[in-house]
Design a protein around this nucleic acid. Structure first.
Lengths: 202, 202, 202, 202
DNA sequence: GATGAATGAGGCTTCATTCAT
DNA sequence: CATGAATGAAGCCTCATTCAT
C-alpha cells in the first residue's frame, strides 16, 4: 500500500466519521426528537467519542443546522433527477410532487427530522431567512407557480398561497403513511397528485 | 374603588391563577418551543412562585397535556358555533374550513403551540389514540367525508386522504399568515376555501 | 348544655386536635420514616389544615421532639405500674424487662418511631444530653445496676455496660417479632428474660 | 518528584475518585444521616463536581446501596481473618464477637452508617431478603447457632433469638463507646465477650 | 383560632461542552 | 486528532413554613 492510497483511506475514514455522526443524529432526532438525542447518545451511535463530534461540528446547534442543510441538498438532487425542465408546467409539477412524496416515503427518517426541525427554535431562523427573501431551495417549486401565473395556466393566487394549496397536503399524507394510517399505492399516488394539480390549475 | 370591588378583584385574581399559568405556558411554548419554556420561566411569566404551578398541575407533562386539551375544547366550541349541522355538505365544509382558518389567524399562539405539541413526544400518544379509533375531536370533520363518500358527493378517496387534501393546506397557510408572508383577506379566504372544497368534491 | 360543658367540649376538641396531630405523625414516621412524613401528610391524616399544626408545635422539629418526649413518658408510666420498688433486685429487673418487651410488642408504632428517632439528627442532641448526665428517664433502670453493683449481686461492670448487656437484646428481639421473624410467646419471653438476668448477675 | 511518579500520582487520583465519593458519602451520612448528606455536599467533600458522581453511580440510591454492600464486604473480610473455622464453637464465637466489636470501634463511621442504613427505606428491602432466607452475609454467625443447637452446646432457643441474645448488646456497646460514654479496654472486652457467650451456652 | 394557597430554598439529576491525556 | 472523564449550569420537583382570609 503506497502513501497515496493510505492517505485516501485515512481521508475516507475521516469523511466516514463525519457521515456517521450526521446519520446517528438524524436517526436519534427523527425517532426521539431533540429531547431524546443527547450528544452522548449521538456519539455512541456514531461509534466515536463524545469530544470527537466537536472536531467536526462547533456545537450541537451547528450539527443540527448542518444536518438540515445536507438533507435539503439531497432532496434537491432527487427532485432534479429526471426533471423535465423544458416540459409543460403540468408535467413539471407532477414530477416534483411525486418525487417529494416518494422521497419521503422511502426516507421516513428524513421526513421525521425535518418535521422536528421546522417546529423548533432552529426552524425559526430559517423562516426569518425566507422572509428576507434569501434565495432558497424552494425556488424550483416557486418558479412553476410564477410561470403558471404569468401564462394564465394557474389560478390567480399569490405564489405562496399556491404553494400551500398544492403541497400542503403532502406533509399530512406522508405522516399518515409513515404511521401506517394509509397505504399509498401507485394508483392512489397518481390520483392524489392529479387532485393537487387540479386545485391550482385554472 | 370600594372594598367590595377590591375583594372581587382579589378573588378574581385567585381564580385566574390557573388561567395565568396556562396562558404563560401557552405563550412561552408557542414562541420558544418546549425547550424554551422551563417551569421557572412559566411561573415568572404567570406571576406566581415556581412551586405554585404544582398546586394546579401535577407535573409539567400534565400542564402541557391539559393545555392541549383546553385549546382543543375551545377550538371545538368555535367550530360548532353557527355550524349548519343540517345543511348541505358543501356548506358544512366551508363553515368548518373558514372557522379553523380564522380561529388560528386570530389565535396565533394556539396555532404555534399545537404545532409544537404534535411534533413532540406528547403528540405521539395522541396519534396512537387516533390510530386506535378512539372517539376524538375530529369526528365532526370526518363525518363530512364519510357522508360525502356515501352520497357520492365527494371523490372516492380514503377518508384520511380526503382530510389531508382538504385541510393539509391550512397548516401551511396559517403559518405563512402568522409570519407575515401573506395577507389573507376576505376575498382570498373565500377563494381558498372554495379551492379546497373543489379538491375533494367529485 | 350550659356554658361550662360547652367550654369543656371545646377544650376537649382542642386537646384532641393536638393528640390527632401527634398520632398522625407517629404512624407516618413509624411506617415511612421521616422522609415519608411531610407536614402535609401529617395534617391530612390528623384531619386538620397544614397551618394548624403550627399553632400546636413551633416547627416540625419541635413536633417530633415533643412526640418523643410523650412516648417516653407513656412508657415510663407503663414501667412503673406494678413495679416492685421495694422488692429484690432480680424481681425488679424481671418486671422492667418484661414490661418493656410487652409494651413494644403491643405498640409497634412506638417502637418503630423510637428506632427512627434515635437514628436521626434528633437523636444526637438527646445523646448529648445523656452524655452531660442530665437526669433522664432511664434512671429507674440504672438504679438497679447501681445497687446491684454495690450489693455485689451483679457483675463488676460499668453501669452502662451492664445496661447494654441486659437490654441490648431487646431491640433486636422486638424488631424480629414486629417483622414476624419470631413468635415471642409466654414461655419464650420467660426464658429470654431469665437469660438476660443471668448475663449480668454474678 | 519526577515525571514518572507524578503520572502515577495523577493516575491514582483518578482511580481513587470513586473511593473518595464513597468515603465522603459514608462520613456525611454517618454524621448527619441521610437528610444531612445531599449530593452537593457529598460531591464537595469528595472534591468532585456534582455531575461526576453520576459517572460512578446511577443515582443516590445506588450510591448508598453500593456503599452498604462494600462495607459489608469489608466487615466480612475482617471477620474471616484468622477465623478458626475448624476450632470449637466457643472459640469461633469469641473470635467473631471480638472482631465485630473491634472493627466497629476502629471504624465508627461504618457503624453509624449501618445504623442509619438499617433504619431507612433502604434497610427494609434488606430485611425482606433476610426474611425470605436469601443467602446472606450473616450465615457465618448463624452457622454457629445452628451447630451449637445440634450439638447441645447452646441453649434451646430459635436461632434468631440466640442471635439477638448474643449480639444484641454489641450495638448498644459500640454506640456508647463511640460517644465516649465508656472506654472499652482489653480487659473489659474480654469479660463482655465471655458474658455474651455465657448467655447462650447451655 | 383555623384554613390552605402560596412561597421559594434546596434536593436530585441531565447533558452540552471542555481539556488533560 | 481522538478520547472520555469531568464539569457545572440549569431543569424539574418537594415540602417546611407563612399569612391573608
Amino acid at each position: 500500500m503506497n502513501i497515496h492510497s493510505l492517505m485516501k483511506g485515512l481521508n475516507k475514514k475521516i469523511l466516514d466519521k463525519r457521515r456517521n455522526i450526521l446519520q446517528a443524529a438524524l436517526e436519534l432526532i427523527a425517532e426521539n426528537g431533540f429531547h431524546g438525542a443527547p450528544m452522548a447518545a449521538i456519539s455512541e451511535k456514531a461509534g466515536v467519542a463524545a469530544g470527537t463530534i466537536y472536531r467536526y461540528f462547533e456545537s450541537k446547534d451547528v450539527l443540527i443546522t448542518e444536518l438540515h442543510r445536507e438533507l435539503e441538498d439531497r432532496i434537491m438532487v432527487a427532485l432534479q433527477e429526471g426533471y423535465p425542465s423544458e416540459g409543460p408546467l403540468r408535467e413539471r409539477f407532477l414530477h416534483l410532487f411525486r418525487e417529494i412524496l416518494q422521497y419521503f416515503m422511502m426516507n421516513p427518517f428524513h421526513f421525521r427530522f425535518l418535521e422536528q426541525y421546522f417546529n423548533s427554535p432552529y426552524g425559526i431562523s430559517l423562516r426569518r431567512d425566507r422572509l428576507l427573501r434569501k434565495p432558497g431551495n424552494y425556488d424550483i417549486l416557486m418558479d412553476i407557480f410564477e410561470q403558471g401565473s404569468e401564462q394564465k395556466v394557474l389560478k390567480d393566487f399569490p405564489k405562496i398561497v399556491m404553494f400551500s394549496l398544492a403541497f400542503g397536503p403532502l406533509t399530512s399524507l406522508i405522516r399518515d403513511h409513515t404511521l401506517g394510517f394509509v397505504n399509498l399505492d401507485e394508483t392512489l399516488i397518481k390520483q392524489i397528485t392529479e387532485a393537487c394539480w387540479d386545485t391550482i390549475k385554472r
